[in-house]
């Protein structure tokens, strides 16, 4: 990319391994770090709010960064005010986050609330930053089914990254050990949620059964013996052009011809 390095801050969190539950770098945050590295190189700032002693944070430093800022917060704190205050004075042009945390509530609200607090626009599901010219960024947003959408947004903005972003690079052990965690003392705001809500081990959800709502025996018999679908329109004895026209009309109606 030809533009000057942006001032990019990536917010990182401590993740949990999906099977063992062991602390690790969070998958989406690592992708956000990777995206930040491709935009700002070594100038990328990492920011974490939480425990500065967490070993899992070093995995982000192992991706090729020398230091990271940690706003010291206890486990049950609401980190939003601390992050908001820090970012307001950090002079960042782009704040990258994952789209939801792997531990705790994991509501995915943080990027939205940060954008609201800072009054910056928010891009959801950032896949790529194509160009930044004159304070306006042109970015690609990832959509379901592998689709992409091009958006134009004025700097500064917040962007969340989900699993459609490019895969994160590996973390190297040596740089991870050598990296510095710069600790900062900030005010602590308690989060009231867990006073009224309980976290419990996830219950497997019941599989939905096919319920036949038949009132009479005849209807039950019909439902039991009927084929899955009655079948649609069958066009016979047509010229290929007429057949193609019918298919074309359906494809246009379903809006899949782009």
């Amino acid at each position: 990319m030809s533009h000057d390095p942006l001032n990019v801050i990536t917010l990182v969190s401590v993740g949990a391994h999906p099977v063992t539950g062991r602390a690790r770098r969070a998958e989406q945050d690592a992708r956000a770090v990777d995206l930040g590295l491709s935009l700002a190189g070594k100038e990328l700032h990492l920011l974490h709010a939480g425990d500065p002693q967490a070993e899992a944070l070093r995995a982000y430093l192992g991706m090729g960064l020398a230091e990271m800022t940690v706003l010291q917060q206890p486990p049950q704190a609401d980190v939003l005010p601390a992050l908001g205050n820090y970012l307001r004075h950090a002079g960042a042009q782009l704040v990258l986050t994952g789209s939801q945390a792997e531990t705790g509530e994991g509501s995915g609200m943080l990027p939205y609330l940060l954008a609201e607090q800072l009054d910056w626009p928010l891009i959801v599901g950032l896949a790529e930053v194509e160009s930044v010219t004159g304070g306006v960024a042109q970015v690609l947003q990832a959509l379901p089914r592998g689709q992409r959408r091009r958006l134009q947004v004025r700097l500064p903005f917040v962007a969340s990254v989900d699993n459609a972003a490019p895969e994160a690079r590996q973390s190297a052990f040596g740089p991870a050990r050598r990296g510095q965690l710069q600790q900062q003392e900030v005010a602590v705001v308690e989060d009231a949620l867990l006073e009224e809500a309980q976290l419990q081990p996830a219950r497997p959800r019941p599989k939905r059964l096919k319920v036949i709502k038949a009132k009479t025996g005849a209807e039950r018999m019909k439902a039991a013996t009927a084929k899955a679908s009655a079948g649609g329109q069958v066009l016979t004895d047509m010229t290929p052009e007429q057949g193609a026209e019918a298919i074309f009309a359906l494809l246009r109606g379903e809006d899949v011809l782009r």
Binding site: A16, P18, G21, A197, Q198, L199, A202
Partner: peptide, 8 residues
């Protein structure tokens, strides 16, 4: 909640 290991 979280990565799907817990319920809230």
């Amino acid at each position: 909640a979280g990565a799907g290991q817990q319920d809230l």
